[in-house]
Computed example of a mutant assay.
Amino acid sequence: MQKLTRIITLSVALTVVSGCSYVGVYKRDIPQGNLVTEEMVSQLQPGMTQEQVTYVMGRPLLEAPFDSNQWDYVYRLDEAYGGVVQRRVTLTFDPMGRLANVQQQGDFSTDLPLSTDSSLGPAVEGADPLNTLPQENISTQTPETAPAPQPVLRAE
């Protein structure tokens, strides 16, 4: 009986310590797709060329495979301890390659809570990892202020 009690106690302790605990699990926000803001969409005007749209919005996440005149910009933010925020902008171009129609789906009126903290985890693109980049010390010397070269003597 005492051996059975030890086995059960050990099993419960190992289960709690191994990760199957009541403490909780760390979760991260998962952003996917093209970040689309209300400011970007407001810059779109009918008649813009595809190059102008690419300059404002970036390359689309989806291009219709059989119709190159439709571009889809999709953004999805799966919040760790919340819901899912989804935005979609569908742009339609005429046969001449000019913007003809803009369709929006989702709530563009609110800013998205994008975290740029420097906590542990995958690096954010363009971020300085652990602030380890060397500082640039650029000192300009003119020929007048540069030290004169010293002759090298060699023993023979």
Rank of each mutant, 00 (worst) to 15 (best):
K3W: 06
T5E: 13
T5F: 09
T5C: 05
T5P: 02
I7R: 07
I8E: 06
V12I: 14
V16P: 00
V16F: 12
V17G: 03
G19K: 09
C20I: 15
C20R: 08
S21P: 00
V23W: 02
G24D: 14
V25D: 11
V25H: 10
V25C: 10
K27N: 13
K27C: 08
R28F: 11
R28H: 11
D29F: 06
Q32D: 07
Q32E: 10
Q32T: 06
G33S: 00
L35E: 03
V36F: 02
V36R: 00
V36H: 01
V36I: 13
E39V: 14
E39M: 12
E39Q: 13
V41E: 04
Q43T: 06
Q43L: 08
L44K: 15
L44R: 13
Q45V: 04
P46L: 04
G47E: 11
Q50T: 03
Q52F: 08
V53M: 01
V53S: 00
Y55S: 12
Y55T: 14
M57Q: 01
P60S: 08
P60Q: 11
P60A: 08
L62F: 03
L62V: 05
L62W: 00
A64D: 14
F66V: 15
F66L: 15
D67V: 15
W71V: 01
D72T: 07
D72R: 01
Y73A: 04
R76L: 07
L77K: 02
E79Q: 14
E79C: 10
A80K: 00
Y81M: 15
G82Q: 14
G82N: 09
V84W: 09
Q86R: 06
R87I: 11
R88A: 08
R88M: 14
T90F: 06
T90R: 05
F93R: 02
F93H: 02
P95L: 13
M96H: 15
G97H: 10
G97T: 09
L99C: 07
Q105T: 09
G106W: 01
D107S: 09
F108Y: 08
D111W: 15
P113N: 12
D117L: 07
D117Y: 04
S119A: 04
S119F: 05
L120Q: 08
L120K: 12
G121E: 02
G121K: 01
E125H: 12
G126S: 14
A127N: 04
D128H: 06
N131G: 03
T132M: 13
T132W: 04
Q135P: 05
Q135C: 04
I138Q: 05
S139D: 05
S139C: 02
Q141W: 07
Q141Y: 12
A146Q: 13
P147L: 07
A148Q: 07
A148C: 03
P149G: 02
P149V: 04
Q150M: 12
V152I: 06
L153A: 09
R154E: 08
R154I: 08
A155V: 09
E156K: 09
